[in-house]
């Protein structure tokens, strides 16, 4: 086995489950050579034979160290092939990479977990962690926004979490037909209605960059400190090791300094066009 982190390790697909029209969850063998267990918010580089490699966040319970769970949306040449893999087929695995959610740092605080669209996938690992260590955290609110009721990821699980007395789930969609009994409206507009304590809340935000930007504005307006707001950023990545240069965002290498970054580190750059 190579000790060069650019060389993938072959691992088998154990199961594949369709989540949404173009979104699947793959369960993979964890692999021998990977650099230890994944942490919530970290990602792996997944390689499809002859096609290419993409960064995908872990979306599973990271305590289950014998398997790796990734939720993939089929949007590009590699992710389409990835999402179509069947059990027993093999992918190349490199990882885990990057800095994940501030799970330890936020112990003792209330958590406001804000997800948009497929951004719920990297946050699901954080939710699993929180539920396993429920006593270490204060009030927990999950605010999840997506395009329409048909685009709600992990719907049964959200339902299950919402049943818990110690976990609040708020789901909102951009638009819906009259069958939908839930909330309609954008995520940032709902932030001020949640009634959380901004002084004692750590916010973890993942979603499309525009949604994160407006959500951060709403969080700051509500009084949450910049240092207590964490975002998971996305940029092009080829190596995941800080060498290929593609993921640079100002002085930040999103692959190794992120993908989860405190807002105070990207403040001022996030709203800059084409930066």
């Amino acid at each position: 086995m190579s000790d060069d982190l650019m060389v993938p390790e072959p691992v088998r697909v154990l199961s594949r489950q369709q989540e949404l029209e173009t979104t699947w969850t793959l369960e993979l063998e964890a692999g021998q050579a990977s650099r230890g267990p994944c942490l919530p918010g970290q990602f792996n580089m997944l390689y499809v034979f002859g096609v290419g490699e993409v960064p995908i966040s872990v979306s599973g319970d990271t305590v289950q160290s014998e398997t790796l769970v990734h939720t993939v949306r089929a949007v590009g040449p590699v992710s389409r092939k990835l999402a179509a893999l069947k059990p027993m087929e093999i992918v190349g695995l490199r990882g885990p990479f990057g800095v994940g959610w501030p799970m330890t740092q936020s112990e003792g605080s209330d958590l406001l977990i804000v997800a948009g669209g497929l951004g719920l996938a990297p946050l699901r690992s954080a939710v699993y962690h929180v539920l396993r260590n429920r006593e270490k955290y204060g009030r927990i609110i999950l605010l999840y926004g997506t395009r329409s009721p048909n685009d709600i990821l992990y719907s049964p699980q959200l339902e299950e979490w919402n049943q818990r007395p110690d976990f609040e789930v708020h789901i909102t969609v951009d638009h819906a037909d009259s069958d939908w009994q839930g909330m309609i409206g954008v995520v940032p507009a709902l932030v001020p209605t949640l009634g959380f304590d901004p002084e004692d809340t750590v916010a973890m935000v993942c979603g499309p960059e525009i949604m994160m930007r407006f959500t951060v504005n709403a969080l700051r307006d509500a009084g949450v400190e910049d240092e207590a707001i964490f975002l998971s950023m996305e940029r092009n990545m080829k190596c995941a090791l800080g060498h290929c240069g593609h993921c640079q965002f100002g002085a930040t290498f999103v692959c190794k300094d992120g993908p989860v970054l405190p807002f105070d580190r990207v403040r001022g750059l996030l709203s800059l066009k084409e930066f």
Partner: peptide, 12 residues
């Protein structure tokens, strides 16, 4: 690196 596929095995 090179990857070779042989049946359902994949080697890097």
């Amino acid at each position: 690196w090179q990857a070779t596929r042989d049946g359902d095995e994949l080697r890097f």
